[in-house]
Design a protein around this nucleic acid. Sequence first.
DNA 1: AGAAATTTGTCCGTATGTATC
DNA 2: AGATACATACGGACAAATTTC
Lengths: 136, 136
Amino acid sequence: MPTPHYGQPRYRAIADKLREQIESGAIPPGALLPAESLLTADFRAARGTIRKAIAVLREEGFATTEHGRGTYASPQTKNPPNETDARQRVMPADARLAALFRVEVGTTLIEQEKVIRQGEQVKAVVRTYHVDDTGQ
Amino acid sequence: MPTPHYGQPRYRAIADKLREQIESGAIPPGALLPAESLLTADFRAARGTIRKAIAVLREEGFATTEHGRGTYASPQTKNPPNETDARQRVMPADARLAALFRVEVGTTLIEQEKVIRQGEQVKAVVRTYHVDDTGQ
DNA sequence: AGAAATTTGTCCGTATGTATC
DNA sequence: AGATACATACGGACAAATTTC
């Protein structure tokens, strides 16, 4: 049965179950999760699907992975769920941007903002501006 | 946001950006490009689209791919180096930036601005903000 | 010291279902 | 209808880091 994804995708469902095991202590902090090969058997999912589930846990801070070693359950996660890493908005061109893009002041531009973190700390904020093509 | 392809197909736009990074030296010759999985995240594109973009670069000679290894940036590039203007200035943190960096409003930040041109046209303006560490 | 096994990382090709232009 | 693109999922193969024998 290849690939219906009604409701929730499989990798999310799998992530949920693994997260449960970590939060409940069934997989104690610092312990290794079962290898991907085992998880593919347990969940009868392709390796890619398993890896995607684990990627979710990493992003949420529930696990860390080391090449050749395995994936460890993270200790304590009191992390506030996602402080937006990236966002996009439209904004009118100010004088400088208007000059650069050679459009009139007030023309709608798209601003993408990306927050670059290193651990807890914000290292940089990158904002990319470009003209809105979506009206052509 | 599912799938407009105005003007240029998405995979071409992505190829453009990656080519830019190779030509500009942001990805040095011989270095590995980010993995397909990362690029899907970076560009918020489907894997198939990313792979198409990379295929374009391969055909153009900007990259070579090795199975199980990754995609390398090719040396070469006698092309005229991208016309990009850059400038730097200091500015006080506004409310949003202050919140992101967890500093007080008004704290001096460094803003780097890069103008990315393609021929005559300005394609994008990138502004990078970071805290001024030079006093640490 | 060295070979083998284990495990993660990455790419390859393919497939299904949905949505938009 | 067709092209483009997204999200999801499968299975396979090769590469690289680590552990085990």
